[in-house]
Write a protein that binds this DNA or RNA. Structure first.
Length: 293
RNA sequence: GCUGAGAUGGCGGAGUGGACAAUCGCACCAGACUGUAAAUCUGGUGGCCGUAUGGCCUACCUAGGUUCGAAUCCUAGUCUCAGCA
């Protein structure tokens, strides 16, 4: 019986703390689903609470100047989860990168199709109109499926061309992993509360030596070109902007997760939400055990 | 005190007689997103009514004026900045 516990939600809601608590209680192991914590040396800025929480899988997978993608993440996560099963433990997928979680749970096809640097380079100078015209030529069906937002998004247009150019049947990402039962727990907070928490957390990160981390990364030349240099790192030392960007990011996360009706939401401002979640997980666990017998 | 420049929507900043509720950027709100996802992209953003084309009201420092018509021109005032005393 392959069970998976997902802990998701916007940033600064205490996902890792909750996951750690549940891991202790239910013999679980954490797998981080966070697209930034995969980078080495970016510890304070991405909030790797190693000291506080102990072992978490999914940290430090690549260097800050390396490319990373969902498909790599799925490969990693699947093998990590397999290992956890082999130890008879409960995998807990915890993080705020909605796409990564979805990719692991729902086995997305297409993400197995590798990028085509040559093609990307060739297309990099094209306008949106030209890209869309090219798509219409290859596959009007696929082109017209795009919504108005994606149609104006060069990154998406290029990727679709890449996919259609690949020809063969879409490769799946690594050996897929099917789950028998997934429990989705989401942590949420009001905008006001979220803002408060974000401000506090950014201030804490600054206090615990964020500037030194940035200096180190710069010195190592990781800032020259790095997909990893985003919010926080990107605008340093503008800490007010960092806070604002962090909140906007949280809102994007909320927009993403809101759509997934599988998620059971808990407001972290309510008292004893942790206890309630524990109860829910316990019940879920027991039901599964009963089925197995 | 004199001389010059200027006062525009939450902020920055265009516009300099009609196409202006006012380009654009930021901020803000909503949304999309199956190989960059802390990324990328879309829509909205004075008030009221309408699903909408649209209609009405209040707006470009204040008060008057010119004009069919003013954010744009004139007069006076207030304030800000720069240079000189």
């Amino acid at each position: 019986m392959k069970k998976l516990l997902v802990i998701c939600g916007p940033t600064a809601t205490g996902k890792t703390a909750l996951a750690t608590r549940l891991a202790k209680k239910f013999n679980g192991e954490l797998v981080s689903a966070d697209s930034r914590q995969v980078y080495k040396y970016m510890d304070i800025g991405t909030g790797k609470d190693i000291k506080k929480y102990g072992k978490i899988l999914g940290y430090d997978l690549v260097r800050p100047d390396e490319e990373f993608s969902v498909s790599q993440y799925v490969n990693f996560a699947n093998s990590a989860i397999r290992k956890i099963y082999s130890q008879n433990k409960l995998p807990i997928l915890v993080g705020g990168t909605g796409l990564y979680i979805k990719a692991v749970v729902d086995n997305l096809d297409r993400i197995g199709i590798p990028r085509n640097l040559k093609l990307r380079k060739k297309l990099s100078t094209k306008t949106i109109e030209e890209l869309f015209a090219a798509l219409m030529k290859i596959s009007p069906v696929e082109a017209l499926k795009l919504n108005s937002s994606d149609r104006a998004n060069p990154r998406r247009l290029v990727r679709l061309l890449e996919v259609l150019n690949y020809g063969e049947a879409p490769a799946s990402a690594a050996e897929s992993l099917q789950f028998d039962d997934v429990l989705w727990v989401g942590l949420r907070a009001s905008a006001k509360e979220l803002k408060k928490r974000i401000v506090k957390r950014v201030d804490e990160r600054i206090k615990s030596g964020f500037e030194k981390e940035v200096e180190f990364l710069k010195q190592k030349d990781f800032f020259k070109y790095a997909p990893s240099v985003t919010l926080g790192y990107k605008d340093w030392p503008d800490t007010e902007k960092w806070k604002r960007e962090e909140f906007k990011y949280a809102k994007r996360q909320i927009t993403w997760f809101k759509k997934d009706k599988r998620i059971k939401w808990f407001d972290v401002s309510k008292k004893d939400y942790g206890g309630k979640i524990e109860k829910l997980v316990k019940k879920w666990h027991n039901i599964q055990n009963a089925k197995e017998n």
